[in-house]
Nucleic acid binder design. Structure first.
Lengths: 205, 205, 205, 205
DNA sequence: CTTTAAGCGAGACGGTACGTCTAGTCTTGTT
DNA sequence: AACAAGACTAGACGTACCGTCTCGCTTAAAG
């Protein structure tokens, strides 16, 4: 999480309690205030910790906030809802619900914005968030193939997985964060109709 | 562009040259530094203008930067390529090309990130960027209807326009800025196939 | 007092009221807290002024405190007591009384101690305190010459003024702050006898 | 030297080498940096010792530095130069030479400054520095009396010794450390003329 | 020859202040 | 009026140091 040199063995060990308190405080402050108005002094005060203790663990405000939020994107699941359409609608609504939380929306966009001029951060996001969530698409396709809803792969499905992921995640993120309109059951249904119709048409070629 | 009170008629008129210089300076600073590190003093200095001249035109930093960003997206056009499919592929590639420029990618993400915790900014983005670019979808549908490629509207097409816009813009932005993979002619073709297939299926219900 | 570039002519002029408020606050804080515990933030708060307003005028804490200390010594006066001897005894007792106040003794020694390894500070002390107080010696000599107690200058009196100042100030400071013995009327009388006798002998050569 | 509780008898004894290393490091740091910029962490690092080892021996920074400096003032001597005038000029130049070394000037002023608000330290300085150097004045007077340059004492000379000492030491310290002007042979000659003339005049009363 | 009380190096900790930077406002004199 | 210049309040930033507090390890004398 925080950059902790593993080689040290002398000196007083860092307080694990402080780690937790700081990350909790940072998450809480992020939700209440947003990235720009969150201040290190405030986080330190909330955590009951000195400001130096923050700077001993993270080089600056960005590093801390990115870490404070990184774990929020692991909670997406793909419960089996019995049909491809239900699975897609479910994951769309679940993802939208996540993005409706200020903590997550702020964190995701802030980190992506920061990444537009930081190649290393871009790679980190791709590994930690993008590739992780592609598993949801892969799992959904597998189930649909088992159910006979879509034909089995006859080649490498990577390109199609990528496309599906970009369309689903892109549309939800765009509607929730750029257009700023609600991702409700109705929109999810209409979106799913378009997506599945499009995929059927594409594979029929 | 900038909020210009129309009631004034006496006194020295505002310098149009200053308007241009400020917006140019803001765009340049935004690209070089990103949202967070851009400062009003720096923009004023680049524009060769006093800080008061900025604040006379825009209420605060956010307002100025949003305007500077919005102008970047006004260059998108929809030349008639003869078919709906060609028009969609064309606008996808055009939009992707825009997002491949560091200027635009940084600006868009910066402004969206800032908006995640700023309701007023969100409204401003929607008015200055989102609604403005929906014109492309509306125009594309109109042409396709004239060509007979899609049936004429039998109700209010707003919801469908919104959905199409979210899907196109979302998928392109997501692939270009989050997944960080190229939006090339091949991807555009496959995406268009899915989109048009989906829309056909949706209207066939 | 504070470094004020005289060449500027545009922009808002610096507040003379702030100048006064800051120096007053600094003097007060110096008396209450001593050099080490005086903080810039505290001085700013006492003066009802932002910290930046301090740093716009003085480069750092030392510079400000030196000026504040210098002002403490501006209250020394040389009322005409009718004879050179009475004037010397008067200023010796006045100076000793000043050094008996903890505020002044602490401030003077602190600033001199700080200056032992800071060439710039040394120059500043010389300009702000030493040269400023030499006025007392110059004025005393002028009066004595008018009274006919000492002959008029027949050359540049600077070296003699310097010597007299070092002897008077040095002896008083040394007795009060290093030897730590009282500078009373008796000591002042004996010291004055030695000083005036010495000066008479020196000019008789 | 350092406050060492005598009651302990078990456990690992304190390292005498650390004592030396710390005091040496403190003296060196004091000369290089001055009192204010000397830091306990830096002294510990120079001494190759942990900060706790410093605080086990001295309660705080002041205590350590005072101890580090105490021994520096024992080197003044009064060789017989054959006449009172030559002896005075000699001791003036010798004392000035001592104060021209950064080590001594910094140490002396630092310790005096600290003493302005520490009664115990003031007494300690008086015993260790002031009274010790008064022997130079006493010895000089004795020699001059033997040579017949000044009349023998007809009462208690203490008050006069004190006055002479304050004048000499005060003037030299003031010129060297406050006025910051060179104490050269010329100044020493002029000062001696004034001092001896003054003393002659005073005893002629 | 083990126990034991303390010293020791390393470095984290709560604090406090530093000096810098920026936002957004205000005050001059000039155009 | 707008403008250039720059002072102003407010407050966060990231750094440095103080003096304290764990850690785990070392060292001598006491048992």
């Amino acid at each position: 999480m925080c950059a902790r040199e593993t080689g040290r063995r002398t000196g007083r060990p860092r307080s694990a309690e402080a780690d937790r308190a700081i990350l909790d405080a940072a998450r809480q402050a992020l939700v209440e205030l947003g990235w720009g108005r969150l201040s290190m002094g405030d986080v330190a005060a909330r955590a009951g910790v000195a400001k130096t203790t923050l700077y001993r663990r993270w080089a600056n405000k960005n590093e801390l906030v990115v870490d404070a939020v990184a774990a929020l994107f692991d909670e997406l699941e793909l419960p089996d809802r019995g049909s491809l359409r239900a699975d897609v609608e479910g994951v769309v609504l679940q993802f939208a619900a996540l993005l409706e939380q200020p903590a997550t929306r702020t964190a995701l966009m802030a980190v992506v914005a920061e990444a537009t001029h930081d190649e290393a951060l871009r790679r980190r996001i791709r590994a930690a968030i993008v590739d992780r969530q592609k598993r949801l698409v892969i799992e959904g396709r597998r189930r649909a193939q088992e159910r006979g809803e879509i034909p089995p792969d006859d080649g490498d499905p990577t390109a199609q997985v990528d496309l599906i992921f970009d369309v689903i995640a892109g549309a939800v993120v765009h509607r929730a964060l750029v257009s700023c309109e609600p991702v409700d059951a109705d929109w999810a249904a209409r979106f799913t109709t378009v997506l599945l119709g499009g995929l059927a048409a594409a594979s029929a070629i």
